[in-house]
Design a protein around this nucleic acid. Structure first.
Length: 310
DNA sequence: ATAGGGTTAG
């Protein structure tokens, strides 16, 4: 471009800078940015934003804040992306409360926080298993009239999953549908993952009902997740039912499927002959190929005592 | 042109 005498613009600069960031080439980004300015280019909002992203994503938040300061000193306009990057830079290093503070700052400066802003902090609080703050920010978002989307809901659901709160998850799912937000494949998988302990099979059943109401077509992953979920609850009958249904609708079981079946057995822990014959009968009735099961056991490093069962 | 998320075994 230079040899042809073409000038760089905001498109060129942000593209180069974010490419450096994706590859973790911080020094190259620094040099490119410095050279730009030396050549007389005045960076605009998008170029500054991409620089903030580079340092924010890599956890060098002090440098991200320095870029922000330079941006202000040069009277460059700060937009919603700028603030969102600053929020991301803070939460990246665990400064969640500082991230929330940025939401207030931006609002007071006339830049309205959007779903991305809120989802960034909601997700961060969720990953930190901070149930109270996750829900608090989620509530504030709603009060201020910012509409949640599927990503916002996913973050809240993931947090509730980590905290084993299936009732709340189902409430959130209802809220989601009430707001016309459609659950995605992984949303359903997330819903199913929590229902782990004894007695939780009713939640798996409930989620399954919700799926049907939503006319959701389970894919292969969903069936694998369902088999695992029922397995974790110790509900072998439904494990078998799901396996059968999976075959019926035409999905080919894979290593994950067999591993989930194996782990259903392994979880029981009592390796007496009675269980052995019972499951072999069930598996045979379902046409589960034994060689595939052994292969799964092998690849999944299931304990040798389990292999002994066969 | 730059910003946020979730996925099955153990």
């Amino acid at each position: 471009m230079k040899s042809k005498g073409l000038e760089f613009d905001e498109f060129t600069c942000s593209t180069v800078i974010s490419a450096c960031g994706r590859e973790g080439m911080l020094d190259e980004a620094r040099k490119f940015f410095a050279d730009l300015k030396l050549s007389g280019y005045r960076p605009g909002t998008v170029t500054y934003n991409s620089m903030i992203q580079v340092f924010g994503k890599s956890g060098v938040y002090v440098e991200a804040l320095n870029i922000l300061k330079e941006m202000k000193d040069n009277h460059c306009v700060l937009d919603v992306v700028t603030y969102n990057e600053v929020v991301a830079a803070y939460v990246r290093v665990g400064f969640h409360d500082e991230g929330v503070a940025v939401i207030h700052t931006m609002a007071s400066r006339g830049v309205t926080p959007n779903a991305i802003t809120y989802t960034t902090v909601i997700n961060a609080y969720g990953k930190a298993r901070n149930e109270d703050k996750t829900l608090k920010v989620f509530g504030q978002m709603k009060e201020l009239g910012c509409v949640s989307n599927v990503r916002t809901y996913s973050s809240v659901l993931a947090m509730l999953g980590k905290r084993s709160r299936p009732e709340d998850m189902i409430n959130i799912l209802h809220d989601m549908k009430l707001n016309g937000c459609l659950p995605e494949h992984a949303t359903w998988n997330t819903m199913l993952v929590v229902c782990g302990e004894e007695g939780k099979q009713k939640y798996v059943n409930q989620v399954l009902r919700e799926m049907k109401i939503s006319r959701y077509e389970p894919n292969k992953d969903t069936f694998n997740t369902l088999i695992s979920a029922y397995g974790r609850c110790g509900y072998e009958v439904d494990v078998a039912k799901m396996y059968g249904e999976m075959i019926m609708v035409g999905f080919t079981p894979c290593i994950t499927t067999y591993s989930a079946l194996l782990n259903t057995l392994a979880r029981r822990g009592d390796w007496n002959f009675h269980n052995k014959s019972y499951f072999l009968l069930v598996f045979q009735a379902l046409d589960v190929p034994m060689d595939r099961l052994v292969e799964a056991a092998d690849s999944a490093s299931v304990c040798s005592s389990f292999l002994f069962l066969f």
